[in-house]
Design a binder for these strands. Structure first.
Lengths: 223, 223
DNA sequence: TCACTAATGTACGAACTAGTACGTTAGCTA
DNA sequence: TAGCTAACGTACTAGTTCGTACATTAGTGA
């Protein structure tokens, strides 16, 4: 997550009052605290205490706990969007492109466990904050357009047999990546296997790619 | 979830004091309340109010909010275990057996959204209640043994090419089933597609089966 | 039927928690 | 440099929430 450390914006000398920096600092700490404890478990006082400013400022800039959480989600999804816009796989052949896309998705989930937790938390609250956000409604995903084009190309060249839709394929890839991180604690406790064990990382990454490619290229019975 | 209605245990006339019934009623309501609001969002007073008994009894029988949540998880996992023990797929050929197992898993997730929510919530708390439970540590899953035997048979008969482990295959199947339910709200809000739309149920159920079978039967490059 | 205890209800308290009223000041601009 | 306002801090409150002290009774076994 983009964090605001001491030398906020180089060139400008550190001012005592800096609206942009204060807001960013609040968002940083709030992201951690909400991800750690959930919406109801998070404490506004605790967020304020871990900031260089006070609780007063949270209400001044964000209005309240609910809106703060919404702002946290907006920024978190913004980071994902940016990463997905860097996606550069369309110079590859369809099979390699999809595998690469799956791997990038896999890596991204692994690198952002806080984001995964925020999304889990938001689902417990039935996405009410996303619904309340102007920025996030039907935001979609840049990755989706990429998938759409690769699927198109793969079907035209006869490599892909499956009649999948881009959104469904995205769901399939995401579900594995997301579950591996989001459910690692219960899964580990019940089955004694750590899905995020670094030693198993390559194994699961390959497994995901194999699964998706096998699905897309399998000869299917007439349906 | 097993709910305790008026004619608790037939044959016995309804007593005013009934320890078994009171505890079961508390667990029923607590399951709903924790699943609805999360651990920190749930209110002990609210649980008590929706019961025929009082808050005093929750502390009398369970000790506290934490232990109540643990008891809720224990019972919820118990229900899953029972269902999995009914699993009867080993008379089928390996391909049909795995597909059937995937379908049963799919159906079970769909039918128990509260359980999915409880598991999501427990993951936010890093499975600390499962860790604290004597009943739940390394409980495993009856389905796992079934998967193990089917995989064995499938490999021996040459139908399955993939070198998967039963636990990993279980993770693969669960991830799709779980994500579809757990993340339906954010996914729906962002992509405008309801993963739990009844009209799409058969579609996703087939998709899961196709995916798993394609993975298990794909001709793999030497690895 | 009597006494004993598991089961239960009432009322309360201490600590917490989101949110705010009120006052102050840094830094920019005219 | 004077004045204005966005940015900020302190101290407080009203309402909530987990947990418990204390009193009571239904049902059971001797």
């Amino acid at each position: 997550m983009t964090s605001v450390e001491e030398p906020a914006r180089p060139g400008e000398r550190e001012r005592v009052r800096d609206a942009v920096r204060t807001q960013a600092e609040i968002l940083d700490v709030a992201t951690q605290e909400f991800a750690r404890a959930g919406y109801d478990g998070a404490r506004v006082d605790e967020i304020a205490a871990r900031t260089r400013t006070t609780k007063r400022m949270i209400y001044y800039y964000f209005g309240g706990k609910e809106q703060l959480f919404t702002a946290v989600l907006e920024r978190a999804y913004g980071v994902i969007r940016e990463a997905e816009q860097q996606l550069d796989v369309e110079h590859l052949d369809p099979v390699a492109a999809i595998r690469r896309l799956a791997e990038v998705t896999f890596d991204h989930h692994e690198q952002h466990p806080d984001f995964i937790r925020l999304v889990s938390i938001e689902n417990i609250h039935e996405a009410q904050h996303i619904a309340a956000s102007e920025k996030l409604g039907r935001i979609g995903s840049p990755a989706l357009d990429v998938i759409r084009r690769i699927l198109e190309e793969g079907r035209r060249s006869g490599l892909f047999t499956a009649q999948v839709d881009a959104v469904d394929l995205h769901a399939m890839i995401s579900s594995f990546c997301f579950f591996r991180v989001s459910n690692r604690h219960t899964f580990g406790a019940l089955f004694g296997r750590d899905l995020v064990d670094p030693a198993q990382r390559a194994h699961y990454r390959t497994m995901l790619g194999d699964m998706v490619i096998a699905y897309l290229t399998a000869e299917r019975a007439a349906d």
